[in-house]
Design a protein around this nucleic acid. Structure first.
Lengths: 175, 175
DNA sequence: TATTGTTATACTCTATAACTATA
DNA sequence: TATAGTTATAGAGTATAACAATA
């Protein structure tokens, strides 16, 4: 089954023939107004739906479901910034430092990352990839790009760039 | 603190002065290649980040954090389709039917939704809003639009439409 | 046999609060 | 006082598997 593909059909169906199973007549007569189409017009709803689709394909394509997008991002940032502190990673990925601990624990348990106490500032844990982590990253990156490619293929290059630009404007906002 | 706002600064900082705290010299010299900027170019990364920002503002703006986006979507769909069955809601929101049970439980416990066994097909639970649910929905909708407006304001009308169009193409895809 | 809803179970993601150690 | 990391705790979201009732 591919639920995502049926969404528009379901909407169409709903619009053409409102459900007959309604059990409270009052509620039924009150509905079918403008409310029916609110959700599909909202940024939040569409981003959430897009995120779910990406999440699932990521799980299917990358690391056989063993790695989630958050873990991949962490590995990629450590690869790009060896020695980065956990708190910097938290800021970068916009998640709480407490949530980061568990994430790093998992990566350390898997043998891909090591924590090393900084000599200059002994509060900091510097993060670096192990050789196994480097190797894993190469595989991950290939699978990640394969995953990315499936979705990038939905767009022309200028559409893709535009989408990324518009999304960045959103996540850089601080409302 | 506003972590999201600092992301680009952090990137800039990283590019200008790579971290000095690196503890394994070998790893340090190996990095700083193309890998540093992979993440910000990926659709998945940007959608995930956007989703986090929206999620947080939603929690701040709507129902004082008592309602999450998934619950709002469920309420809005029941409002628009009184008598809708749980399985239809699952398909619509692209989540598993088993996950839907807990969600509906919470909405029923709060007194906003009632399940009513269908007479035509006794396997089905028809969902409708209670009067309290209808009232809650009106408040929720107002707060939701306020939340939406903060982000819609980042775009021109044509940009917003384009963003929604591009996102829909993504979540209607079945890769 | 297939569908609808449910329970049981498990794991990830996230947050808050309180703590330790270091600065 | 402030920062980096940790632990404890909690709740939401998700998924799979197995099951009962119904079609």
């Amino acid at each position: 089954m591919t639920p995502a593909a049926q969404i528009d059909d379901v909407y169409a169906m709903k619009r053409k023939s409102p459900p007959k199973k309604s059990l409270t007549r009052k509620a039924a007569s009150r509905a079918a107004s403008i409310d029916a189409d609110i959700l599909p017009t909202l940024l939040g709803y569409n981003i959430r739906r897009a995120q779910i689709v990406l999440w699932r394909d990521f799980a299917r394509t990358v690391a056989d479901g063993e790695i989630r997008p958050g873990m991949f991002s962490a590995i990629a940032l450590v690869k790009a910034n060896p020695g980065i502190a956990q708190v910097e990673l938290s800021t970068e990925l916009a998640i709480d430092k407490a949530s980061m601990v568990g994430l790093i624990d998992r990566l350390e348990d898997a043998g891909w990352i090591v924590r090393t106490r900084s000599q200059e500032d002994r509060r900091r844990q510097g993060l670096t990839l192990t050789p196994a982590g480097e190797k894993m990253y190469r595989t991950l990156k290939r699978e990640m790009l394969e995953h990315e490619q499936k979705f990038a293929a939905l767009y022309s290059e200028s559409e893709r760039k535009q989408l990324v630009t518009l999304l960045r404007r959103l996540h850089d906002a601080q409302p």
